[in-house]
Simulated assay, not measured.
Amino acid sequence: MVMRQKSFLGLSPAGFHNIAYTEWGDPTASRTIVCCHGLTRNGRDFDALATRLAKHARVICPDIVGRGRSDWLRDAAHYAYPQYCADMNALIARLDISELDWVGTSMGGLIGMTLAAQVGTPIRRLVVNDVGPFVPKTALLRISDYVGLDNRFSSLKAVETHLRKVLAPFGPLTDAQWQHLVAHGHRQRSDGTFGLAYDPAIAINVKMAVQDWDLWPVWDRINVPTLVLRGAESDLLLPQTAEEMTQRGPRAKLVTWPGMGHAPALMAPDQIGLIEEWLTAN
């Protein structure tokens, strides 16, 4: 499957910034699927999923600003959902489409929820991976403990050891899958050491917002078919929240996977197959 790396310009109050994305599949396909990653990750997390979905649609996997190959913002105060949503709106305009499906993990799921809740949303179907309209303070405390640390690693093996620890809730992954996360989840510094592929300053607003998040008014405005995925041991999408998501708003379909927490990596064949089947049902 041919992969194309592209970019476009986003705009913050501090000026323009470059946003990278990966495109898979036929660029003239009648359907488009956007896959949006979690807080510290990047669009290459979706390579396996995108390869499968590209049989049916053009698949777009952006690096949210401050992550992956995208620029870092000049003013870290703008690492927030209004900026992320504005950038994704610019991406939709760039793609010249009036309708799309959205697959979002954690932060990417919250961006998708926000866009889907808007009047006249172009989102046709929504997949939300291990996040919901209630985010508990305890989960945000855990995340704030490691996000934003300006880690320096002596080797890629040390990067892998770190990622295997902090991303253990992703679930059981093969050695090749861990190596894929490392390959696209690191940056080499000028002194020869390695860091993670995101701006540590993305943590500033996260640490300032460590409290329970109540986003039920957003959820209740969503009126598109929605699939919610959850790791059975997730501390971010609690079981009672997930169950209530099936009763309110879009009355989502819920699938829970055992043996993983926040958030399922969406790399396993059964996970990919489920998403493919649901998105292509009609």
Score class of each variant (00 low, 15 high):
274 L>F: 14
128 V>L: 07
196 L>I: 10
117 A>C: 11
246 T>C: 07
98 S>A: 14
53 L>C: 07
8 F>Y: 11
180 H>D: 15
110 L>Q: 03
51 T>C: 11
201 A>T: 08
166 V>C: 08
278 W>Y: 14
95 L>S: 02
265 A>S: 14
27 P>M: 13
131 V>H: 05
18 N>Q: 14
31 R>I: 01
240 Q>R: 10
199 D>A: 06
281 A>Q: 14
245 M>E: 03
276 E>Y: 10
124 R>C: 07
87 D>R: 01
196 L>P: 00
67 R>C: 13
119 V>Q: 10
84 Y>R: 01
203 A>W: 02
242 A>D: 00
216 W>G: 07
256 T>R: 03
145 D>P: 02
162 H>V: 07
87 D>A: 07
198 Y>A: 02
33 I>G: 00
280 T>P: 00
50 A>E: 02
257 W>A: 08
16 F>V: 09
193 T>S: 15
36 C>G: 05
14 A>D: 13
101 D>C: 11
261 G>M: 06
26 D>V: 06
276 E>V: 15
276 E>A: 11
277 E>W: 13
186 H>G: 03
218 V>F: 05
188 Q>V: 15
244 E>K: 13
264 P>N: 03
82 P>V: 06
155 S>E: 12
131 V>G: 05
208 M>P: 00
75 D>E: 15
96 D>Q: 13
234 S>V: 07
212 D>E: 08
86 A>K: 02
14 A>V: 12
256 T>L: 04
148 G>H: 01
34 V>D: 00
136 P>R: 04
4 R>S: 09
108 G>P: 07
266 L>M: 15
215 L>C: 10
189 R>L: 15
137 K>S: 12
182 V>N: 01
95 L>A: 06
216 W>M: 07
84 Y>S: 03
135 V>I: 15
204 I>S: 09
258 P>D: 12
50 A>S: 10
148 G>S: 08
125 R>C: 06
184 H>K: 09
228 V>W: 01
